[in-house]
Every structure is written in C-alpha cells, then in structure tokens.
Design a protein around this nucleic acid. Structure first.
Lengths: 211, 211
DNA sequence: AGCGATAATCTATCACTGATAACTTATCGC
DNA sequence: GCGATAAGTTATCAGTGATAGATTATCGCT
C-alpha cells in the first residue's frame, strides 16, 4: 500500500527558512526511531511533505542536514547549562546539580544527544571537515561553560586535581560514558536508573572534589 | 582506473571456515579507515579476494558479519581482563591496573572497540535481535570479570558504594566515556593523553574506593 | 579413470540509497 | 499583465545490500 503522498503547500517567496525548520524537525523526529544511517532522505522528505530532491535546496548533503541538527543539539545543551549557572556558586551541592543538568539533558532529549555526541564520524574528523567544522565549534562553546564551572571550583580550592582543564575533560568523559551507554544500550541489565545516576554523580564528586 | 580484480584461489572442499576468517580480517581492516556504514560489502569482498555475493555464503547479512566482529572484540577484551586477573588481589594498586587494562585494550584496538561498543544499533536492540543476541551475550561475559573484581574489592571493605554491581556499572561507564570520546573525537583539543588517562583513573579510584 | 554429489563461487539482477540535471510553476515587484 | 526568481517537480545516475540461478572445482566412490 502506497503512502498517501500528502504534500505540504508551496511556501511563499521569502519563507524558505521556515521549510528548512520543518525539514529539521521531521528529520529529528525520524532519528528517534532509527539511527541516522537508517533514515533515508526520501523518508525525511515525505515526513516534511516535499519531494526528496527538494531537500537539496536547503542542505547541500545529508551530512549537512545532520550537522545542523548537531549544532542545534549543542546549542540546547549550552542553553541548559547556562541556565543552571545563574544560581551557580562553587559548592559540592552545585557540582551535583550541574552534573545532573547534563544527565537530564541527555536523557530527556536522547535523539539530540545521539546526533550531537554519538554519530560516528568518518576518520580524523572527516565529518567535521565536510561540514565546515560548525558542529565542533558549537560543541566547544557548550564545553566552555563546563570549563568555567570547574575553574570556579578550582579557584575556591575545592578540587583535588591541580589541572582544572584536565579535570573538566575527565568529568565530561565520566558523564558521557553513563548517558551514552544508557541511551545506546538500554537493553543492558542496568541497576535501577535513579540509583545508578545518583551513585555515578556521587562517585564523580568524591573523585573530583576534596572532602 | 579499475582495480586489478585480484581473486583469491578457490578454497578446497572443507576449508570454507578459512575463507570466513579472511573475510572477517579484511572487514576489520577496512573498518579502521571508514566507519561500519562507510564500508560496502563490495569493498569487503574485493579485499578478501572474492565476489560480493560470495560473502553471503558465509554471513546471512552484513549485520551478521559485524556481529561476528563484535563477538570477537568482546572475547579479546575478556581475554585481556582475565589475563590481568591472574595476578589479581583486591588492592587500590590493582584497581588502577585493571582500569588501565581496559583503557589499553580500547586504545590499542580501537577498531574492535568501536565495533563492539560504539556501533549504533537500531531501536531497542534491533541489532541484537537480528543477530540472535550473540554480541550481547559475549559482552555480558566480558562484563562478569569486571563484576567479580569489584565484588572482591567490596568484600575486602575497600569500596565506598554499598552496592558493588551498581559501582561496577558506574566505573564501566566512566571508562567507556573516556575511551569512546578519545577514539571518536580524536580531533578534540584534549590535554596530554597520558596525563588525562592517569588523572581519569585517579578520579575513578578516589570516587570508588575508601581512603 | 570416470561418475555423481556438492561445496564454492560466479554473473545478472532487484529494490533502494544519496545526489544531480533539467524542467515547471507559483509568487513577487513593477 | 510582465519578467524575474524562489520553490518545487520528474527523471535519472552510480553505488548499496541482498537474492536467484547457473557454473566450476573438488571430493568420495566404484
């Protein structure tokens, strides 16, 4: 049985950007069911209500489309982290909250997180080269907020590691490991999730901070 | 310029398994240059010196071929971890060594690690369903050794977490986060690798063990 | 040595993929 | 109405994973 082939009406002259948004939304929605390689440009186009070649008026390649989602995911993460920083003070309690913010983001928007952090890129950043390094740049921006927080804790004399940048990378890796496995290997026999997350954060805090 | 189309001689009657090995070797070699989706069955076949459809005499699908590599990667990891356990005693020093064994494996065989832990599987373990759950089972076996070690440390009263299984999962996540990012995002401006790894292990130890 | 059986492999082909070329049509300012 | 052009189309390409069916080399057996 053929699909109903429902086409979205043609956009007025200046509204190409709007269609672009619709395409990105449709794509991200499809990426939750199958992985990035499993979703075809034809499926994306149909979900957006246009023909498949019409995609290429908005994105040069499928990678560019994915890169755009990647950038937006990083921006969302940065927004959440920055939001938390309004009440920020360098204390162990706020450290826990910051870790929780990252984990919450990843688990509440797993599709965005997958696209941003877990899409296999080609060798030595070929994906980033093809996409002009924009995802990488957006990722770095999100990372900077993280760096600043740990630097605060370091300045307050609360950290055990003498190199705050190294500590930041270590903590980020610790967080990423947990959420990426929870997202990608949900069928693994994990212990109860709340307790796992709480235990993980506690371990990171004890490993990173004094006391 | 066409490739030289060099074909491996036909195998004698009972030696199909040998060809199977050659295919797997060729595939893993190709997977280091491009990611799993970037390597085609035709490329694998040519590298193995046979025609593309001939692959399907040895593997029902491309996923099955990947799953076999996955199983072997887990087996390699298990072998390394088991090997380290011959000199095992529940001490902080041996804890560090065990962590290092895992990281060493991942970084010395990044292709195997990628195939085993970082290949995006479909939704809710569709990959594992399609491949009869064999990779998952192999992974669990490798994980058991890890569980046993942490249980030893727990029995010796060295751990801070009261649930050794939860702690094991937390530590595994911590290790996986670091190595998966180092492998997949090698272009990220990491601090010096040796120091990063040492710092990471130190953080995990302080977070997991008493003292 | 020659025969049947069959393992090992081939060529040809399918539906589908990302991408491009060339064409059409709706909307705009004048 | 008019030309200009943004927005979209259909038709097509080379490359993908996979299948069907024919072919060839190797084996055990007489």
């Amino acid at each position: 049985m053929k699909s109903p082939q429902v086409r979205s009406p043609r956009k007025p002259k200046g509204q190409g950007a709007e269609r672009r948004e619709e395409i990105l939304d449709a794509a991200l929605r499809l990426f939750s069911a199958k992985d990035v390689h499993g979703v075809s440009t034809r499926q994306i186009a149909e979900a957006a209500g246009i023909s498949q070649p019409a995609l290429y008026a908005y994105f040069a390649t499928k990678d560019d489309l994915i890169a755009e989602l990647c950038v937006r995911a990083f921006a969302k993460l940065k927004a959440r982290m920055d939001d938390g920083r309004s009440r920020w003070t360098p204390t162990p309690e706020m450290f826990d909250r910051a870790m929780m913010t990252y984990i919450d983001f990843a688990l509440s928007e797993p599709d965005a997180y997958r696209v941003a952090f877990m899409v296999e890129k080609g060798p030595e950043g070929a994906f980033h080269a093809r996409t002009g390094g924009r995802p990488m740049a957006a990722g770095m921006e999100a990372f900077q907020g993280f760096v600043a927080m740990i630097a605060d804790l370091h300045a307050a004399g609360l950290t055990r590691d003498d190199d705050p940048l190294r500590l930041t990378q270590t903590l980020w890796a610790g967080l990423h490991g947990l959420v990426s496995l929870l997202i990608a290997r949900s069928e693994f026999p994990w212990v109860e999730r709340e307790a796992l997350i709480a235990g993980h954060i506690a371990m990171l805090r004890r490993g990173a901070l004094k006391g």
